[in-house]
Design a protein around this nucleic acid. Structure first.
Lengths: 210, 210
DNA sequence: ATTTAATTAGACGATTGGTCTAATATATTT
DNA sequence: AAATATATTAGACCAATCGTCTAATTAAAT
């Protein structure tokens, strides 16, 4: 099921570690990311995360003041993970701008297929749950979407420059629409356990740019 | 907050009621619909529904064998509620086919605004939560989407007939896309607590039909 | 009048969620 | 090296949640 390391940690203050890399905290975030992209915030219990990582509750509350704080850090964690993925595709100079968008969407299809369409997008999941979430989540999630939107916008501008898309396209607005629709497609792909919605939306969207 | 009737019910077998209308069961479904469209399945507790309606647990488990059964009935309840709304707009003969779609989306904007963008779409919410839900939910949700899709498809075919949209439009595929994107827009509207996404997607979609 | 059916009332046990304090081990200071 | 401070784990604890089950109440059916 999951391949998170469950090495037993020693009690007490750990020996100095110049790498500055925190194993337990990292593992908690990784596990949280897995579980929350699958089931969302409310449906995921702390105990579940703990069990998966193999640490007791004390560790969790040592690193995170509460589930809410954990959630907020997780958004950051996920968003920086996803930002890299986006950059990898959307600034790939070996591809034309439109090819970059296609590459991103193909990768997403593969990614979702890899987990049998059980995992979606953390940001989308949390957005859907918004009214059950602590209010501070909202601002954070909006910021993340805006960040992603900018990256798509840049890519569209490059496409326009290259004459791949119509001059009439409003790149900012169109990038906004992309994420609106894309999250809908991810949702639907999870429901149908198949990539149809992702593929269909991607095609539909790219056609609209001509 | 909520205006569900919390009339105290009498204990014991109720007097015969030829209307066949069940007050308590109806109230539980109504309350469930409110809470689940806001917070989803996992985040909503049975006790919360009970409290809102003002009945004890015994009543709940008298009418519904389990939370799962309740959820499944709720999907039916919501879907028939929504079907009426869809029909009201999408078969309104006083409007042109495209105007019907516009009317639907305007009504949705008003509806969401009315609840301060806290409530979304029950079916979308549950779709997002899918991996945390009992498996029988999946088939039911897919069926509902298919039903809605057919209604939009009919409307698009009428639009084509009337020469309002391009002959090239694949009405079935386009109706599918509509719901993919629309659910994304609802999600986003909830997150941003404003109708921008709904309006933007609606415009974008209609433009694509030309 | 008696029995049967429908419904509410709410106690109960198992499980889980989140918080908090104590125990333990290493680092730092003197 | 003894004393103190810091980092981390261990897990007790209480409140809430879920689902079950029995009793109580009322009306219908016989």
């Amino acid at each position: 099921m999951s391949n998170i390391s469950t090495i037993k940690r020693r009690r007490g203050r750990p020996p100095k570690d110049q790498t500055g890399f925190n194993d337990t905290k990292e593992a908690l975030l990784r596990s949280g990311m897995e579980l929350l992209t699958e089931k969302g915030y409310s449906a995921t219990g702390i105990d579940e995360i703990l069990r998966q990582v193999g640490v007791p509750k004390g560790s969790f509350y040592h690193y995170f003041g509460s589930k809410e704080v954990f959630g907020l850090e997780l958004i950051q964690y996920y968003s920086s993970f996803f930002r890299h993925k986006l950059d990898k595709f959307l600034t790939d100079q070996s591809l034309s701008p439109i090819e970059r968008l296609i590459a991103f969407s193909e990768d997403a299809v593969n990614g979702m297929a890899h987990y049998n369409f059980k995992r979606g997008c953390l940001v989308g999941n949390l957005g859907q749950e918004m009214s059950a979430l602590p209010e501070p989540f909202r601002a954070q999630l909006k910021t993340v979407f805006y960040d992603w939107q900018l990256k798509v916008q840049k890519c569209l501008e490059a496409a326009k420059e290259a004459g791949q898309i119509s001059d009439d396209v409003d790149c900012q607005q169109s990038a906004y629409i992309f994420w609106v629709g894309w999250e809908g497609a991810v949702l639907r792909a999870k429901l149908e356990r198949c990539p149809d919605a992702l593929i269909a939306f991607s095609k539909f969207y790219l056609d609209s740019l001509k």
